[in-house]
Amino acid sequence: MRLPTAKPASPATRALEVVPPSGPTAWLTTFTAGAMTFLCVFALALSLASGRLANRWSEALAKTATIRLSAPAEQVQIQTDAILATLATTPGIASFRALDDAETRALLEPWFGPGLPVEALPIPRLIQVVEGEPPYDSEGLRQRLAAEAPGALLDDHTRWRRPLAEAASRIRLLGILSIALIGAAMAAMITLAARAALATNAEVIHVLRLVGAKDSYIARAFVRRFTLRALTGAAIGAAAGLIGVAALPAADAAGGFLTGLGFTGWGWLWPLALPPLAALVAFAATRRAAFQKLRELT
């Protein structure tokens, strides 16, 4: 004769057995968790990529600055010398040089066409400054320049950098918001599924209460089940998402935005955190739903 004690089972396993198996609909929870995690991987890739992009743009533009000198013709050389002298004595500057006429002409060529008589035009003199480590104090430099060369204007590209960095960080925010929404949607769906399962098993729950089961015991049976389903689904979804991201073409030298979508270095570990996170969401959602529903069932 086979008795229940003949096959040792942990209390948790037996808690799982007291609720009858739930049939084909069980797959819906796994599927939902999988699909949500799959989407989450891409939202994560988007966030990380836009974060990287923001840093890259900021850094590239932050390293260089331009001093523009507009002065009467007879003043140009004097003030240029004054600027160069000022720069030479400013700490935090790696290098600097004045652009000669040929370079200035090259810069303007796309707009005015070749053969521009630069000498005849009141074109400002440009001086390129490359930031050192630690960087110079741009406000201090601006004031010294104002004193030494009134026609000089320091442009450290803040005007360009700010909107770019803002756009990138806004995209990152959207990515994070998407991840939060995906998590919330998964919690909502698992709550609904758990409530349906609890309602279907109202009679089983009644029997368990009758023989002295606490709510926590009954909840455990459901919570374990849904947590495991979400974990399985999320693991599959995360794996599929990672394969999808890995299959994207690699970023080329130009570092275009779309081709830069993906993970780099430690970033590849982020998606691995998603399945445990999904399990955690399922755990909390089912537990909450179970205790709520159990109170209704007396």
Partner: peptide, 24 residues
Amino acid sequence: KFLDHMTLAANMALPFTVSDRESS
């Protein structure tokens, strides 16, 4: 009020099972 998916012996042991105790 039995759980129809469990054997008679398992049903009889249910009060023990739900209180995380073993029946001898």
